[in-house]
Design a protein around this nucleic acid. Structure first.
Lengths: 346, 346
DNA sequence: GACATTGCTGCAATCGACTGCACAAACCGC
DNA sequence: GCGGTTTGTGCAGTCGATTGCAGCAATGTC
């Protein structure tokens, strides 16, 4: 004998002696009021005893709701994203939703195709965490009224809700920390200029340096072409080669800071004696580095959770106005920052 | 004017002047042969020009196929899993499938509920990467003929296909490497005894030590209660406190090895001069540690990809016999291993 | 006691794609 | 020119749950 088929609504209705329509109404909290309380109770009990589980596919066909949302990220392998995804899932799941993840690898055409696939799968909304999403696509989704939330990136001029860490405040924390240690000539290895994050952090760096009365010197900023160790290393090398003098570095993110570590090893610069470094993101295991990296802790999981909540809100009430949330960061002070040592760089 | 509705099969059929049934057959490669070649061509062209995308929900209702599979993992936040998931998605996506991820946190009741949810979502199969899945549940799925593949874990006595790294060969590589450096007293910090991985690695450790004629001493093995830094540190402390003498440690995995680094710092033991350490998994950024950790590189992404391929095979042909695959590892030699130094540990 | 109201339940259509079956047209050979 | 195939297409039912509408009984009103 083959396994028992999972029971359908009809089975429940038959067992309870009612019509499927009645069973449907009894089981759905929103329509339960239409059914006699006793009948409803009976149906519910029967449903439980049979182990009935509504088939979301069938339901989705009629209601045009799939109970899924699309998660568009560049690459799950980047340690930034797993906690975000985890936070998202933790909110979606109790709400009866699931997330469908796609990796775009920051390839616009791939991204377009992926989004197309997700749409054909009838996702009810998107959480977009890619930096390079081209606006036409975004615009189009927006115009069609597809619910959407952006993560880690503020849409400029676009009416889309977003959840981002408070990058500006974070950079300010970092610079202030270095200033309190006594640093006056602080360099910045900025993230790519075509990412909102990179631009915002760089601007905040400039502002904070000015506000605190530190040495303002454009020559102390280098811009990385990618968010990567290699790019960070290259940027630091160019800064050193240019003869610029500084006693501390604010890196655009942790990967860029890791690139600095490589250059330190290359040129026997000792951190933090010769140069202090601050990262950004607090990736896992940074405390195991030598020296442990001072960095800004971003509440990634919370960001994901908040994004999911906002998306669910938007799905339930599409007319709800777009709201953007900045989440506060905290500075994690570790061994890579210290007062400027006796010997300066170079 | 609201956005144009996405076209349905009926729209395509009307536009092509045929019956929806004919359009369906023309669009489906498997049934296309039933349709006149000219008609088929015409339908396909119309479908393309309208931008028709079949609705997988509607299709799934009739065919009882959802185009989704369940990915059951303990915690996406564990750096082990993202590359595996990525490998899985990379295979599923071109096949028209999507993965639904659930995190069990190694909680059996949560796991049960999650799997139930996935089943009600009509997933066509499972890729299971949790260590603690209780057998009754597994057995039941198996009996009901639900396609399933296990990852990172060999099912003992269960007729389920699995993809695992060749743990035994990996440990052998590690021990052999240390032996070649001149180590004779090598300790092992084994993973939990209730995980197949922990047991297999420990057994291989014993075997290799014997085969190479190194010092066999049960006092040189400590078992960790979890795969974590804290447990690794605790195990190493207990080994040191017991007065055991050794010049190298084979850690059950990288986290346990990281725990060793903490203990080294605590007790001013210098690695690798005093003790060499080998990890397992090659998590990201281990090369940034001081000293960089020698470890075994596991082809996680490849494991995921292979698992997905096997699952798709099983879905297409459920009668296909269960096959288990061992993937080879490679030793990544970095700075944490060296010939035993002048001064031995305590 | 006639009639309106309320409350509950059943009927049947619907969502979009798939598919077994029937049927028409074309084609075949003799 | 007639039975007998192919070949191609259409019809209609199906998957499982939802929902507008109709109908029926109980209750209320005068």
């Amino acid at each position: 004998m083959p396994g028992v088929q999972t029971p359908t609504l009809r089975d429940v209705a038959d067992a309870a002696g009612v019509h499927p329509a009645t069973a449907s109404r009894a089981l759905n909290p929103a329509t339960r009021g239409l059914v006699n309380a006793d009948t409803a109770r009976r149906v519910i009990k029967v449903a439980e005893s049979l182990g009935y589980r509504p088939n979301p596919i069938a339901r989705g066909l009629k209601t045009a709701k799939s109970g899924t949302v699309g998660l568009v990220i560049p690459d799950l392998t980047n340690p930034l994203f797993p906690p975000i995804v985890r936070g998202i899932e933790d909110v979606l799941e109790p709400a009866g939703y699931s997330g469908l993840i796609v990796n775009t690898d920051n390839d616009p055409s791939r991204e377009r195709a992926q989004i197309e696939t997700l749409r054909s799968r009838q996702v009810e909304g998107f959480i977009v965490a890619t930096a390079l999403l081209d606006h036409p696509l975004l615009d189009q989704l927006r115009r069609e009224g597809v619910p959407m939330v952006m993560v880690n990136r503020r849409p400029d001029g676009l009416d889309v809700p977003s959840i981002t860490p408070d990058d500006a405040a974070g950079v300010e924390l970092a610079v202030r920390h270095l200033a309190e240690l006594g640093h006056r000539r602080i360099a910045h290895l900025a993230g790519p200029a075509n990412t909102s994050t990179g631009v915002i952090r760089a601007r905040s760096f400039r502002n904070t340096v000015r506000d605190l009365g530190l040495d303002e010197d454009p020559a102390l900023t280098a811009t990385c072409s990618y968010w990567s160790e290699a790019a960070g290393a290259a940027a630091l090398r160019s800064l050193l080669d240019s003869g610029a003098e500084f006693t501390a570095v604010v890196a655009g993110n942790d990967l860029i800071a890791l690139g600095c570590y490589d250059v330190f090893a290359e040129r026997s610069i000792e951190c933090p004696r010769d140069v202090s470094v601050v990262g950004f993101n607090d990736m896992p295991f940074l405390d195991k580095l030598r020296p442990p990296l001072t960095t800004l802790a971003v509440p990634h999981q919370q960001i994901g959770a908040e994004a999911a909540r906002m998306l669910l809100d938007a799905i339930r009430d599409p007319s709800r106005p777009a709201r953007s949330v900045l989440l506060p960061l905290s500075l994690v002070v570790r061994g890579s920052t210290a007062p400027p040592g006796a010997s300066a760089v170079e």
